[in-house]
Design a binder for these strands. Structure first.
Length: 843
RNA sequence: GCCGAAGUGGUGGAACUGGUAGACGCGCUGGAUUCAAAAUCCAGUGGGGGCAACCUCGUGUGGGUUCGACUCCCACCUUCGGCACCA
């Protein structure tokens, strides 16, 4: 495709109109130049405002895909733009390098995970360089390197010291295919987030991080994240799931115990006709012990738990339950209500016990219908309305209390206050808040992860590895063991160790950490990536953090993004960082799709970055991706669209090369803008600068930024073609062409660098200042006014901007077409939007 | 079921604060250039009507507010995402 070129980059031959620019030569030339010049290396500089732009680091799967390229192209424009704007820009890249695929590859191909990962990193790193991404490679990190995971382990111990890491036996999510446990966030509609297998429940002793301690702050601080999409904040808020309500103690008849329930509808307390305990609730078996119901209840509980270990299809779960033969006493009216156990009550939420109010809760309504438990209406939508005998569905909305003793007549809101006050006065309950968020399960029964730095000693029990003995090295030469136990557990050399406290024999923890821990702090490490004394220095993170602009996929809305916020708050509390939120602005990019579907090998619709780069080069690929749609939306891949981007860049190339005479010869004087065509071009240039600046800076609408530059290029072409050569203003043309190249530089870094030098400049285009626009150039002398009659467009007028209102209206009314439309009618009023339109309202 | 986002030409998308709907690109049609092609350049391109000037309809559907609505309000439909026995 690229032939017929001279060594100096110009096109040879008589007709140079028809050829394409030699992207391959240009891109390899400038790539080397930039690397030699360390163009993208950054250091702390207190004299410059900092800007930290970050793309979510990738898992090193082996090859970049278009989603990556989109992610990096967006980040690169933001980085380059801010550099040109005078910021000290941190733009790093690294590898989320622990995780399952490396183990699978190891088993399939007989290659160690470390080797496989490292070779993947190499090839992806090379591709990233080809794309001309402005990373400071000196800060590159990989989470699987001991120099990195040493500090991941250090942070785990920090959490441990602060009481935020603990081990407990719990019912946890187990993925049978990945052979490991999963955090709640990693179960998507009952399936494993990674392999989509159905997840089952298992009771295991596991490590947790106490994220629930931070539930309140994680929720509250969402309000401070003005630069985040509403949708992500809502998803996090729903995930944290705060509910306000009350805890109420129900004494058990004939016993000392009482049952504590959590409810958000304590106003319906007089409607409670039964009580339900979760099958695992400690009182469930206790209440039936030694009675004739012990056996049936035991088998019910067993069965309920067994069902959870098999399939979890909420649709199939009915409302099974069994009466325990015991009664609770409603502390408000002394009524005795039967106590049941049922599998629709979860031990993990609230108190594991609920009061059943069938008349005002859909689930309770269903349950009582099934098990013939009475219902009692205590809320009516209207005050003083007759209370019906029966109902066909529960009434869960607002209303007024009935059948509720002294609280009758109160509204739901009033009753909630009054009843909560009453509970607290009598000491039989209290206001309470409950969260859906659970502690973060971080143990993984996998080899390829950061070892949890804990040893178990027969004498001393659970002992953390001292921080100065880190890292606990992951042995690289692993032999994989099929089965349910991590391969690490089979490595005797790893397992057997000595106790750091007593020196006696001890065993290491053989579970590794969830890789989401590794990715919860990497953005801090970039600030000080080679620090061997600490995860990072306070000085470095205080200078660079928080991340000003974070860019990545929406799929991490409640995974990585929630965990990272949690980590940041813990590090803040430990006085290691000064920010409470890690990411000031968040951009969630859409997917890259083709033919209406996600690109995938099985569908055969994959376009690889490699093939695009060899056919068109990096600039074309980047330009197309940024032009085809705004970043948050899905991007429809189109081969013809790529062709369009390619054509445009060639058009820019020719625009410069066909005007070379302008850039050589004598130094040109400042532009004198005289003729109408000059003024139009001058205005267009400054209008373009303004619009591109705003599109990139405020709106991230790179598609419209690029289309605006295209319009400018089209206008320059027209100017050259329609004006006789001697009438063309070369000074204006030169300024226009130079600024066009500057505006395009963040989008097409290679081509613009080449053309910048072609124009005679010696320094890199990427070290230039972003062009300013001249307010004077934006002021038009004439404007087009739209003339409407009754809101319909009927004519247009070209008038001086300063024409006064009366004259303008007179002119409008005098237009032939308007006269025809207003003849014989009464002009009711005239709307005048200055500089835009006149609307004549007639009757 | 609950929460959220989005529906605009043949197509990707634009219209930023209620003020010219369809910028820019793709595709298509016609023309220039060429022996011919590729490449490039120019012109046209929402539907219907008219020789034309123009008229008329048109932003998922139905209402409403307004001089004026893709934009605001109400109801609904479709698609996509999140949550889902959370008391």
């Amino acid at each position: 495709m690229a032939w017929n070129y001279g060594g100096d980059g110009t096109i040879k031959g008589e007709n140079n109109m028809g050829q394409h620019y030699d992207f391959a030569r240009i891109e390899s030339k400038w790539k080397k130049y930039w690397e030699k010049e360390d163009l993208h290396k950054v250091q702390m500089d207190p004299n410059k405002p900092k800007y930290y732009v970050l793309e979510m680091f990738p898992y090193p799967s082996g090859e970049l895909h278009m989603g990556h390229i989109r992610n990096y192209s967006i980040g690169d424009v933001v980085a380059r733009f801010h550099t040109m704007k005078g910021y000290n820009v941190l733009h790093p890249m690294g590898w989320d390098a622990f995780g399952m695929p490396a183990e699978n590859a190891a088993i399939e191909r007989g290659i160690y995970p470390a080797q496989w990962t490292s070779s993947n990193i190499h090839s992806m790193h090379r591709q990233q360089r080809e794309f001309g991404l402005s990373y400071d490679w000196d800060r590159e990190v990989a989470t699987c390197h001991p120099e990195y995971y040493r500090w991941t382990q250090w942070l785990f111990l920090l959490f441990y010291q602060r009481g935020l890491a603990y081990k407990r036996k719990a019912e946890v999510n187990w993925c049978p295919s990945c052979q490991t446990v999963l955090a709640n966030e990693q179960v998507v509609s009952g399936n494993c987030w990674r392999c989509d297998s159905q997840v089952v429940k298992k009771e295991l002793e596991q490590w947790f991080l106490r994220i629930t301690d931070y539930a309140h702050r994680l929720l509250k601080d969402l309000d401070t994240l003005e630069g985040w999409p509403e949708s992500v904040k809502i998803m996090q808020a729903n995930w944290i799931g705060r509910s306000e309500g009350a805890e109420i103690d129900f004494p058990v008849k004939g016993r000392e115990d009482s049952i504590k329930v959590f409810t958000t509808r304590h106003d319906t307390i007089y409607g409670a006709t039964y009580m339900v305990l979760a099958p695992e609730h400690p009182l469930t078996m206790e209440l039936v012990r030694g009675t004739e119901r012990e056996e049936p209840v035991r088998s019910f509980v067993k069965e309920a738990i067994r069902r959870r270990e098999e399939t979890i299809d909420p649709e199939e779960l009915g409302k099974e339950g069994i009466f325990l033969g015991a009664y609770a006493i409603n502390p408000f009216n002394g009524e005795e209500i039967p106590i049941w156990t049922a599998d629709y009550v979860l031990m993990e939420y609230g108190t594991g016990a609920v009061m059943g109010v069938p008349a005002h809760d859909d689930r309770d309504f269903e349950f009582t219908n099934l098990h013939r438990i009475p219902q009692r209406i205590v809320i009516m939508p209207e005050k003083d309305a007759p209370v019906p005998e029966t109902m066909t569905q529960a009434y869960a909305a607002d209303g007024y209390l009935v059948n509720s003793g002294p609280f009758n007549g109160l509204s739901v809101q009033e009753a909630q206050e009054a009843i909560a006050d009453y509970l607290e006065e009598k000491g039989i309950g209290r206001r309470a808040v409950s969260y859906k968020l659970r502690d973060w399960l971080v143990s993984r029964q996998r080899y390829w992860g950061a070892p949890i730095p804990i040893v178990y000693c027969d004498h001393c029990g659970v002992v953390p590895v001292p921080m100065d003995e880190l890292p606990v090295m992951l042995p690289e030469k692993v032999v994989f063991q099929p089965g349910t136990i991590s391969s690490l557990a089979h490595m005797e050399d790893f397992v057997h160790t000595t106790c750091p406290q007593c020196g006696g024999p001890a065993k290491r923890e053989t579970d590794t950490m969830d890789t989401f821990i590794c990715s919860s702090w990497y953005y801090f490490r970039y600030a000080d990536a080679r620090n061997e004394e600490a995860p990072f220095s306070k000085e470095a993170v205080d200078y660079w953090l928080p991340v000003d602009q974070y860019i990545g996929g929406i799929e991490h809305a409640v995974l990585h993004l929630l965990y990272s916020r949690f980590f940041t708050k813990v590090l803040y509390d430990a006085n290691l960082v000064s920010c409470q939120e890690p990411f000031t602005n968040l951009l969630t990019q859409g997917m890259v799709i083709k033919d209406g579907q996600k690109m995938s090998k099985s569908k055969g619709n994959v376009v690889t970055p490699g093939e695009i780069i060899s056919k068109y080069g990096a600039d074309t690929a980047r330009l197309f991706i940024l032009f085809a749609s705004p970043p948050e939306r899905d991007l429809d891949w189109s081969d013809q669209g790529v062709e369009g981007a390619w054509r445009f860049l060639n058009r820019v190339w020719r625009l410069i090369h066909n005007n070379l005479d302008i850039f050589t010869g004598e130094k040109l004087k400042p532009a004198h803008v005289a003729s109408g065509a000059d003024k139009d071009l001058w205005h267009k240039l400054h209008d373009t600068i303004k619009r591109v600046t705003e599109d990139v800076e405020k709106r991230f609408n790179f598609n419209t930024a690029i289309s605006t530059i295209m319009e400018l290029v089209n206008q320059i072409h027209r100017y050259r073609e329609q004006l006789a050569a001697e009438k063309q203003n070369t000074a204006l043309l030169r300024e226009t062409l130079e600024k066009t190249i500057l505006l395009l530089a963040p989008f097409a870094p290679y081509l613009t660098e080449e053309l910048w030098h072609t124009m005679g400049h010696k320094d890199s285009v990427h070290r230039q200042k972003w062009p300013d626009y001249d307010e004077k150039a934006l002021v038009r002398e004439e404007v087009q006014i739209v003339i409407q009659v009754n809101g319909k467009l009927r004519d247009r007028l070209q008038v001086p901007v300063d024409m006064d209102r009366e004259e303008l209206e007179e002119r409008a009314l005098g237009l032939e077409r308007i006269k025809g439309l207003t003849a014989g009618k009464e002009v009711v009023k005239i709307i005048n939007v200055p500089g835009r339109l006149i609307n004549i309202v007639v009757r």
